[in-house]
Design a protein around this nucleic acid. Structure first.
Lengths: 207, 207, 207, 207
DNA sequence: CATGAATGAGTGTTCATTCAT
DNA sequence: AATGAATGAACACTCATTCAT
């Protein structure tokens, strides 16, 4: 009765492989059309199967986004935690976080778009409380880094921390909406230019 | 609770007044829940009438967002055009545009949120071609101002114009998602701080 | 408080006059678009008033068709009864009934179309039992005339009376669907040609 | 009551079979209650499924009538074309056309009723232009046959061709409204009696 | 008489989901 | 793993009807 044949050896795209494929497909469609506006059939069409067949792999439409978003966030926080745990100064920390953010956009573009557009609505559902918690963690993280940077005289002493935090947070993620992997600039290069802009400003140096 | 008011000067809330009220209500709901996820009944509930009654005032759900967005954009571009037509230098132009943007957020908060979140999806409909055209106009506008600013030595000569344009565009509008009229900072004050950050950067002045 | 001004003298189009006008308008719209597919607003539009205003004159959409159909049938049966009561032979009776039918089409074209298309559905409602009764009366009437005509050797003795009755009944009324008052042929002339065809047949005389 | 049958030979009621079943059911309901007055749920009830389930098989209510009517007309014109192409004299052509018409009523009773009652309204929709074209083709066909018959001295020379054409056309189709397959007379027998009536007239032979 | 705004039941349609095969 | 057919709740929208003005 169990549909499992053999153990692990077979083709590369076994069990978990198919799941991952389907999640990637679903993420693209959600990102392109919006979660609420996407039908399960559109996802299935994009995957080349029939609507009902998705339910062999997933419990519900909700559980699909859930898996997309939590995979992305787990990965992201693992990198962030690495940066935060490595004892860097405030400015280097800030730069590393921005770089890791753009790398995350590179690896999880569709998921970031979904996160950016839908997490406000989704986080009302019990299942998605972790989304709200993640936003809170972001906020604490950025504020700490900024506060520390001011203390360390790395950042200007007159910064409006709550305001700057929001701009950092949003400008980074909003880039996912136009970023195309393999485009003109690689993720790290975008991060570098972005950092120059944010750190030094866009006006010509005053002498 | 009653949809009728008679205090604020006779026929103020008649005819067009009711329409405007309903549009404001609808905009709030769309902004809070997303266009696709909002039901017509939710809008009606928020307005204190029944679902079907909305159709006395509007043709369709679509025509409601249409009116919300086009009203906002008409107003915005009228202000932008005034700025652009007043012969300012590139830097003053850029500052004025940012200020007008934050003022628009103040006047049309909900509409801006909708514009930001939904215009990509909506602009596929024939009726909403003006949304795409507006994005294009934004792009040309910002690029011109930035290019001119570089020529006038107001902005750094090494700016990546396409990149900076995206950041300016997005960071301004994304503020609508957290801005609350009557909050800690007035729109003009937010604009001032935002400009300082963007123009001078956040790092401590190097001596 | 009473909206009635003056007594009867005034313009020709008082009370009852307006009613009749509205009924004529409604009949045209029902005939053109079908009863179920016609909205009350379409009738009101055609009459140059607003939807709700019709309810000053009539109780309901149903009562409008009711009045249209019963007016027509009352008029029709008054004429038929005159013919049937005048002691004519079967053939002359048949001819007179056909002529009166075409005249009724001339006077009540729209009502006949409605009667033809909708009475089957309408007669299920309690209010419209008279429609079914009218069909029955038609049937008895035609059968009697045909039976009598056979006995009097006016009609062929091998007629299939039930069948001929249906053809007479339907062919007469169905003419309402293409008849236009003021067209090529007047009602009486159409009746004459129709009678020739039905009585003598269309094949060339055999000698 | 079960929509599944398994007696009549294996996969007979699969795929296309189910579609055909549903179309037949829908045709009956449309014929009985009128197209506009029929709700999709009524059709579904009659088929023993839920309203929404119909949309697995059909795009819309409109596409259901569309398929009913076009199937009928395709079949009808195939037979007519066979008659018209077989080189018969005018009178035999006319008789064959009448016979084929009554046979079509026998095979497609409900569709004919719908065609008769609704095609005027439906043909305003772009999708149903073929209905108007079919009426035009009928008209040309009957006029040609009648004209030819007069030339061949098969029909009376004083026929009012446009008038006779309408009576032939309508009297034939209107029979669908009372015809019941398996009733007193078979389709061919009705056709025979109808032809006698139309060709020879109903009056007693004059000597 | 007529308007303007609303009601509320119902309509066609969509869609996440289920399940026997 | 996937299909095909169905479910059933919900949705945008319509429309006959009401009623204060």
């Amino acid at each position: 009765m169990s549909p499992r044949r053999r153990d692990d050896g077979g083709t590369a795209a076994t069990r978990a492989g198919r799941r991952t494929e389907l999640l990637a497909t679903a993420a693209e469609v959600f990102a392109a059309r919006g979660y609420a506006a996407t039908t399960v059939r559109e996802i299935a069409d994009a995957a080349g199967i029939l609507g009902g067949s998705l339910y062999y792999h997933f419990d519900s439409k909700e559980s699909i986004v859930d898996e997309i978003l939590s995979t992305f966030l787990d990965d992201l926080w693992a990198r962030y935690d690495e940066v935060l745990g490595s004892g860097l100064g405030a400015r280097e920390t800030m730069e590393s976080l921005v770089i890791e953010s753009f790398r995350a956009i590179d690896r999880h573009r569709a998921a970031v778009v979904i996160y950016q557009n839908e997490s406000r609505h989704l986080s009302e559902g019990e299942r998605f409380t972790y989304l709200g918690e993640s936003w809170d963690r972001f906020e604490r993280m950025w504020r700490e880094v900024l506060d520390r940077g001011i203390k360390e005289h790395a950042f200007r002493s007159d910064l409006d921390v709550p305001l700057v935090h929001r701009f950092l947070r949003d400008t980074v993620w909003v880039a996912a909406s136009w970023y195309r992997p393999g485009g003109r600039l690689a993720a790290d290069e975008i991060a570098r230019r972005y950092l120059t802009m944010v750190l030094e400003g866009i006006q010509a140096p005053q002498e």
